[in-house]
């Protein structure tokens, strides 16, 4: 990319990237902490995680202000305009991701006194790891302006969906086996749903990166395999 004659303009564009990276780092840590709190049944960690969501909002606000100022002052065109717009949109997705992770932390607090089945935790852990690696790849893809990496993330979201299907079935089976499980399992089910939503936000970010690099939207339909909306599980 060629530099601008006004050097401050380049610095402003770079500062957008820096803020996106900052937010990304915070969200990555928040999600990991929220799950750790759930797995270890650690109420303190859960509270620390839900409190750190506020830290995500600060860079988002700064980024919004800066982007608006840049549009007003520099009137960016073409690639520059796409940079400002995608940074704004990615920040929005990251902010939502932070909220969903915070919700997991809150649920971790609610179930911290209960026993949960080990195999469910293993499943949820697997799902969080998938989501974290999607988040990492998409944020790396943004920093590197690597559309291929982003598209790979976009395609891989199917795996999180498949994991969610499997957990959905297993959780419902547990609830049917013993109604005393329903309390804990409902929280775990929503936690799993949150992670599935986080996966969707990473695909949004991936689409934005594709648009930023190539200047046109991703054309294909994303492979989807979340069928929980159309599934009814009956007690056998």
């Amino acid at each position: 990319m060629r530099d601008h004659i006004v050097k401050a303009y380049d610095q402003e564009l770079q500062s957008l990237d820096k803020k996106v990276a900052q937010m990304g780092g915070l969200v990555e840590r928040l999600l990991a902490q929220a799950f750790d709190a759930m797995e270890k049944r650690d109420p303190q960690l859960a509270e620390a995680a839900s409190a750190s969501d506020a830290a995500v909002d600060a860079p988002e606000r700064e980024l919004q202000e800066q982007a608006i100022l840049m549009i007003a002052k520099r009137q960016p065109l073409a690639h520059d305009l796409r940079q400002v717009m995608t940074a704004l949109k990615i920040a929005g997705d990251l902010e939502r991701t932070g909220d969903l992770a915070k919700n997991i932390a809150k649920r971790a607090l609610a179930v911290s006194g209960e026993n949960h089945p080990k195999s469910l935790m293993t499943g949820l852990k697997h799902m969080v790891e998938l989501a974290l690696s999607q988040l990492k790849d998409v944020l790396d893809g943004y920093a590197e302006r690597d559309a291929e990496k982003a598209v790979a993330v976009w395609r891989r979201d199917e795996r999180i969906d498949a994991m969610y299907n499997s957990l959905f079935r297993e959780l419902l089976t547990y609830m049917m086996e013993d109604p005393r499980n329903i309390g804990v399992c409902t929280h775990l089910l929503f936690a799993a749903k949150n992670i599935e939503r986080i996966g969707d936000h990473t695909t949004n970010i991936a689409e934005n990166i594709h648009y930023l690099v190539h200047g046109m939207p991703l054309a294909d339909d994303r492979p989807k395999s979340d069928d929980t909306a159309t599934t009814l599980i009956r007690k056998e």
Binding site: M1, Q14, D17, K18, A21, Q22, G24, G25, L26, E28, R29, A55, L139, A143, E144, R145
Partner: peptide, 18 residues
């Protein structure tokens, strides 16, 4: 070196280190 920017946040996002 993979990233466009040279700022540390472009290759390490850890909030504590930043």
């Amino acid at each position: 070196r993979r990233t466009r920017s040279t700022h540390i946040a472009s290759f390490i996002r850890d909030p504590e280190l930043l």
